[in-house]
Every structure is written in structure tokens, then in C-alpha cells.
């Protein structure tokens, strides 16, 4: 069987590229060099230049992918660890996360209606502000396209991390709490890694908001998809 060595090679190459991109991002921490983005572009470029398909890549890729489920389960740990911070700021966090989910899905719906975007694409866009593994599952459950959803989640994450500092400045929001909640509930893990630059408090608030969005988001996605269908 040739499959196992090929799968192994794919995994090893993916890990090496990822580690290289992490090193690059540490040297030049600009949003456009986010490791997820650069690794993805790098791997797609390799596959394209050797005329290899995505299905071929996934013979190895699915092993890494299968760890996503347990990784989402792992989010329970920071949530438990930060329970005191969460309880102390429970009201603004919960209200912020709910506002984030509602405003995100509402503006999407509005813009998609104006531009007459097909329904299946709209359904794939709805989970865009939720962390990827959950967003994919939500897309799957509500009748969207999970792979398209990954693209939208990436756009929401990276554009959010790039736009947030200017937006917060223009709208005169200097609160660490507000910054953390906005980053975590609009741009999930990528926003949360951006929040790290604002200090530990903002970082922890952002990861809590991201986790809460991942828990409450599927319920909202489910309700909205029921309303649409």
C-alpha cells in the first residue's frame, strides 16, 4: 500500500509549512501574514503546481482535520479557567455576544437581500463569525456549504483583525472589555489572537466571547435558517 506513506508525507509537509509560517509571523506580526492564511496559500500553490487535487491532499489532511472535534471540546478548559472573570463581567459579555450574533447575521441577511445573493450562499455565510470547526458543522446542519463557510470564516477573521483597531479608534471605544468582546464575537480565533496585542485581560475576554459565540451561535443559526426556509 502506497497510501500510508503518502498520507504521512502530506502531514509532515503541512506541519513543516505551518511551523515556517508561524516563525515568519513572529518576525513580522502583520494580519496578512497570519499562519492559517499563509500556510493555506502555500499548500494550495504546491498542489496547483503539481496538478494535485484537494481529495488527494485530504488523504493525509483528514488526520489533522479529525483532531478538530476534540480541539473544540478543549475550549471548555479556558472557559472553566476564566470562570471568575466571566462571572464578574457576565452581563456585558453575554449582551455583547448576543448583540454580535444578531447584528452579524442581520447585516448579512440585509446585504445579501439587497445584492440578491443565492440562498445557499447566504446560509453558508451565516456562521461566519463562529470559530471554524463549529461554523462548518453549523453550515452542514442548516443546509449551507461547509467548505464555502470556511472561506467566509477566514474573511471575517482576517478582515476583522485588520479593521478592528481603526474602527475602535474612529468610534472612540477605549474599553478593554468592549475591545475583547468585539474581537472574539466578530472574528473568533483570529480576532482573539489579535486581542492578545491589547493585553491579557482583553485576550481572555476575547476567548470567552469566542467560546460563548460558538455555544450560542449554533442555536441562532438554527433559528435563522428555520426562518429563511
Amino acid at each position: 500500500m502506497l497510501q500510508t506513506p503518502i498520507a504521512l508525507i502530506i502531514i509532515v509537509i503541512t506541519v513543516i509549512i505551518y511551523l515556517g509560517m508561524v516563525t515568519l509571523y513572529r518576525k513580522f506580526p502583520i494580519p496578512f501574514l497570519l499562519p492559517v492564511l499563509t500556510s493555506t496559500i502555500f499548500i494550495i500553490a504546491i498542489l496547483k503546481s503539481f496538478d494535485l487535487s484537494y481529495d488527494f491532499y485530504m488523504t493525509g489532511g483528514h488526520w489533522l482535520h479529525s483532531l478538530l472535534g476534540p480541539a473544540v471540546v478543549s475550549l471548555a478548559y479556558p472557559l472553566f479557567h476564566q470562570r471568575k472573570t466571566i462571572i464578574k463581567h457576565a452581563l456585558p459579555i453575554l449582551a455583547g455576544v448576543l448583540t454580535g450574533l444578531i447584528s452579524g447575521m442581520f447585516t448579512l441577511f440585509l446585504l445579501a437581500e439587497i445584492m440578491s445573493i443565492p440562498r445557499d450562499i447566504l446560509l453558508s455565510m451565516i456562521p461566519k463569525s463562529i470559530t471554524t470547526p463549529v461554523a462548518m458543522q453549523v453550515a452542514n446542519d442548516i443546509g449551507g456549504n461547509p467548505t464555502l463557510t470556511v472561506a467566509f470564516v477566514m474573511i471575517a477573521g482576517i478582515s476583522g483583525a485588520i479593521m478592528a483597531p481603526s474602527l475602535l479608534k474612529w468610534f472612540r471605544i477605549r474599553s478593554s472589555l468592549g475591545t475583547g468582546i468585539a474581537l472574539g464575537s466578530s472574528s473568533h480565533a483570529i480576532g482573539t489572537s489579535k486581542a492578545f496585542e491589547y493585553g491579557e485581560f482583553t485576550f481572555s475576554i476575547s476567548s470567552v466571547s469566542m467560546t460563548l459565540s460558538a455555544i450560542i451561535g449554533p442555536i441562532f443559526g438554527f433559528l435563522i435558517s428555520k426562518l429563511l426556509l
Partner: peptide, 14 residues
Amino acid sequence: PLLLVPATVGIMNY
């Protein structure tokens, strides 16, 4: 982020 890469590479189909 590494675990997300196989999924994001799927964008190549779109």
C-alpha cells in the same frame, strides 16, 4: 490553527 489548515485548503475548489 494547524488543525484548521486542511479545511481552509478546501477553498481551492472554489
